[in-house]
Design a protein around this nucleic acid. Sequence first.
DNA 1: TAGGGGAGCTTGTACAAACAAGCCAGCACT
DNA 2: AGTGCTGGCTTGTTTGTACAAGCTCCCCTA
Lengths: 248, 248
Amino acid sequence: MVSRYERIAAELRDEILGGVHPVGSQLPTESELAARYSAARGTVRQAVALLVAEGLVGSRQGARRIVLGHARSQSFAELHSFAQWARANGYRFGGQVISQRRRPATPAESARLGCEEVLEVLRVRSLEGEPVLVERTAYAGWTAAAVERLPADCESVTEALRASVGLVFAYGEHLIDAVSAGAHDARLLGVRRGSPLLRQRRITTTHEGRPVEWSDDRYRAGSVEFSVRNSIGANPLVRQAGDLRFGG
Amino acid sequence: MVSRYERIAAELRDEILGGVHPVGSQLPTESELAARYSAARGTVRQAVALLVAEGLVGSRQGARRIVLGHARSQSFAELHSFAQWARANGYRFGGQVISQRRRPATPAESARLGCEEVLEVLRVRSLEGEPVLVERTAYAGWTAAAVERLPADCESVTEALRASVGLVFAYGEHLIDAVSAGAHDARLLGVRRGSPLLRQRRITTTHEGRPVEWSDDRYRAGSVEFSVRNSIGANPLVRQAGDLRFGG
DNA sequence: TAGGGGAGCTTGTACAAACAAGCCAGCACT
DNA sequence: AGTGCTGGCTTGTTTGTACAAGCTCCCCTA
């Protein structure tokens, strides 16, 4: 059972995406929406707050809310899992484990994952038949057995782990930058050495905040891009200085 | 005057950042917090919701809330404005206009900005004395006069426009990918041609949803990275397929 | 005609109350 | 020892009310 405010939000979102409320137009007031849906104003506020968080609608005190855009943010799962993202968008995709082995954790991994042994997995994933992503993942030791049981061409590791051992990836932190393709990456992706790659490093944790994996994903340039919407009120994406050695 | 829930959120955030609530520990319950601050439960919920949105705290129905991390997300202004971000983090920075001219809008610009003439500005920005960013911005025609009045070494265009003509950058949409440095970019940034660059294209609008600028910013690899936190509930960053020509 | 002052509207904040949904520890039972 | 269940605890949802803050537009005035 979805909650009332989620259903109202979905209905409004459909109206926006369907052109009932064009970009730049004003949304109905909270009172109007409350009357239309026979809901309390607070419930309508929750619904609209979702759309604001998605970047679909702009809001500020005193002024009517305005439709900002048509595109829709997708779910955590789609950002987290290549397979779920690709499937939700109707792409043909695949994946293949290139190598996999247990080894002691490096100091950095030990700090991030809180364990002494990791399972290192190297995967290549493809989109529409083209290899687009090299994924180097270190799984925390306590998950190694479950990961090793997965088939080498497992489409979605996220879903497989959830189904097999009930492991849920709940929170993630992502760092995004650009790097140059090394010889190995270049061969796996079928690009020239030195080509630009879009790198997404991420650490994922369970509901309890327990780290599960630390991954370094490198996308072939032009294959994938990240999109973020924000507003003056709040936004989640942050710029950070890299490890440039200044003054050197 | 900041609101009650924002002050409560700030206090809780300080406690988390100060180690009163270590990573992995449980936050006090809503009832406890409500009692401590003599506030209604709803107000406390608003405060905690802020921390959840920042990715600092994890939350799910039935279970106590858990502290997830120590780092804090910054504001829209810091993502949007290089100057505000750099200043807030204590970096020495600078900027210089390389070229600037009015010209007719390309079809793409016309569609995005909704105008027929744009002001094209090429800027280079530096961090700690090193050039790190090439910024190619197309300002909508109606802002051209105000932008042209700015000094060539204007530190923060955002702040200057706000101060001079009350123009507020309220909403943004950003696309992030990696590209290869062309000859021009390479010379401006002092890197070799073909080096990887982190590209952030963005469109910015006013409160009313009126487009102000369309910008293509290219960061030298290693100088800057983007960070995003998300949870299974909601997240704002989205992966998109680029313009890879499939099956070619 | 240009500008200032409100009036009314709209969103934001805060409180209170009740119930629903989900988690977890401890208990009883096998 | 392990398993299943239950009751209490905690967060999520919904409604209702009241007031504050900020925006818009109209009208009045200079």
